[in-house]
Amino acid sequence: MANLKAIKKRIVSVKNTGQITKAMKMVSAAKLRRAQENVVAARPYAGKLGEVLERLAKSQESDPSPLMVKRDGGRALLVVVTSDRGLCGGFNANIIKAAERFIKGRSGEFKEITLLTLGRKGYEFLRNRHTVRKHHGDVFSTLSYPTAALVAREIIEGYLAEEYDEVFVLYNAFRSVMSQDITLEQLLPVVPKAVETEEQAVEYIYEPSKAALLDELLPKHIEVQLFKALLESVAAEHGARMTAMDSASKNAAEMIGKLTLIYNRARQAAITTELMEIISGAESIKG
């Protein structure tokens, strides 16, 4: 009987856990829809701003902006974007592993690599293993463009003060509920890509000057790219948590089935034993 009570108690415990994972899956599904809408809305704006910036940079004749000048100092800043909460599968572990691969793989290229962490999980793991220059732990609780812009301006100020010479951002890009791509992008210095031949043939009139527009658009470009990375990470986090909780719910259902089978077998064995004892006692009385 003691064994039956223990099995029954475990079945109840697994059922309660399954209810929690199902609820967490539903919450993540609701949050994912909103996060996905934000990502889809941000991508075209970020892409178009990058195109305008590239065209301006290619056609500029004066000295380039300080945010576009590559320096040889050899100090890098890696912005690592993780989540504040767990229970989302390998979402955080994959980013942390990618950050450590970056540090190890490019240690010969840079004489110093420091970190700026966004998200509590990454900070808790990396702070005792690598140099964390700064941590922002309240970004995702009130994620908005002004919040991302504040962090971006802080990064820009450090770059202009020559505290570091290159800036990279590492995050999970959202592809689907089942898929998140680990993405590494260079934020600073801003390196314009090649513009299409058709676009090069088109002449634009700029007001004010190209240099003035560049000075205005370069910080805005970095703010937008960082904000998009944070939106991508949030959507990817909810997708990963939804998948993880769905898997946990299925595992709980399978475990309940196995435990129920064990319970029924143990109960049947106990009943059979009691019947045998009763029959043996009756036979002994007759004898």
Rank of each mutant, 00 (worst) to 15 (best):
Q60L: 09
A229D: 03
R175N: 13
T260I: 01
M255T: 11
I271N: 10
T260Y: 06
T142V: 09
I285T: 15
V139G: 05
E283A: 13
A93P: 01
Q200P: 02
K25C: 13
K193W: 05
P44K: 13
E157L: 08
R153P: 00
R101V: 00
S13M: 06
A149P: 04
I271K: 13
G89P: 11
Q36M: 01
R34N: 06
I156E: 12
A148V: 02
V69N: 03
S141T: 08
A42P: 13
P64D: 06
K9D: 14
G257F: 04
M68V: 01
I256L: 04
L32D: 04
L261W: 03
T142C: 06
M242V: 05
F125D: 12
E207M: 07
V79C: 12
A252H: 05
G18T: 11
K9A: 13
M255D: 08
R265P: 00
E223H: 04
I113V: 15
L231G: 07
A211V: 14
V167Q: 01
K8T: 00
V27E: 15
V202D: 07
E163V: 08
I113D: 02
V39A: 07
K228R: 10
E157S: 12
P44E: 03
L218I: 09
E216L: 13
Q180N: 11
L56V: 07
L170Q: 08
G50P: 00
I222P: 01
D246N: 10
T117S: 09
V81R: 03
E254C: 08
E283Y: 09
A235V: 07
K5T: 07
M24Y: 10
